[in-house]
Design a protein around this nucleic acid. Structure first.
Lengths: 142, 142
DNA sequence: TTCTTTATTGCAAATCAATTGCACTTATAG
DNA sequence: CTATAAGTGCAATTGATTTGCAATAAAGAA
């Protein structure tokens, strides 16, 4: 069983991606690790409680996104949300249209939908990721 | 065969949704009708070429979105995109991670994925829509 | 360890999409 | 034709995200 979420592990993860393992990035990754659901920059900032500057959070998330270490989740109405990608199953989200409440959803796909999608494209070389988000009303808002 | 995209049809569509059929809204819907792919507010504004104020475009899109006449599409990296929902098949999108190029994708789903998703939720009353977007690189950017 | 290079950070300022207040206009029901 | 509430346009504001630049620090080399 592999250790998870340690700063050492994140140091390696960052370096393997060609990024410097700075304390701020490790703290950021630890925040994302603790939270199963996607967070906004503002929520991340609060959880980091002044330990990392807001601009640095933006820039780190951008670097981590490009390195595929974090995912950028796009939910209607809202600003970008981020969640840890490294070491997690690909999953989907259910979003309340009224209050923005989020739940994770796991759906076993018999067929990778990217393949099916590729058959239909005209000018794409490849499609390697997809996002599937569900919308409705949560029990509180219904 | 039904007439499509006429101002008369849109007048009815708007009134049925409890909205006033103003010239600006009809022009906006005609712009969306002509375009098969989702547009940003800025693109819509350009196509309306000064005939409708930017603030009105925002407010109209909001009203049309709530009335389910237009869809708000969420693609990574970008601002909101809008496309006509009324009278169109539910479809998905392929987005180039580099240049933002978009294609529409149609995937026949044997099972409505909302049902499967509902089985997994804890605090949702219902999930009635979903979005499925694919990401990759287009031939030009690869 | 110390040095050197270059990525990263933090601050202030700027940018830009999106929203709001308010007075004016207009669609529509009666 | 009139009344009224919805919709519009303008100016100003908000708030997330980005950028320039000087200071700092990570990582490899010596």
């Amino acid at each position: 069983m592999k250790a998870s979420g340690t700063s050492i592990e994140y140091t390696d993860l960052l370096r393997d991606a060609g990024l410097r393992a700075t304390p701020g990035r490790i703290l950021l990754l630890q925040v994302l690790e603790r939270e199963p659901k996607p967070l906004t920059v503002y929520q991340i900032e609060k959880k980091l409680d002044g330990k990392v500057n807001q601009v640095t959070i933006y820039r780190s998330l951008d670097a981590l996104y490009k390195a595929q270490i974090v995912k950028r989740v796009n939910l209607e109405h809202d600003h970008a949300h981020f969640e840890l990608a490294a070491g997690r199953e690909h999953h989907h989200h259910a979003v309340c249209r009224n209050c923005g409440y989020i739940e994770n959803i796991e759906i076993p796909h018999a067929v990778k939908p990217e393949r099916e999608a590729m058959k239909q494209t005209e000018r794409f070389s490849f499609l390697d990721t997809y996002s599937l988000e569900f919308f409705g009303l949560c029990k509180k808002c219904d």
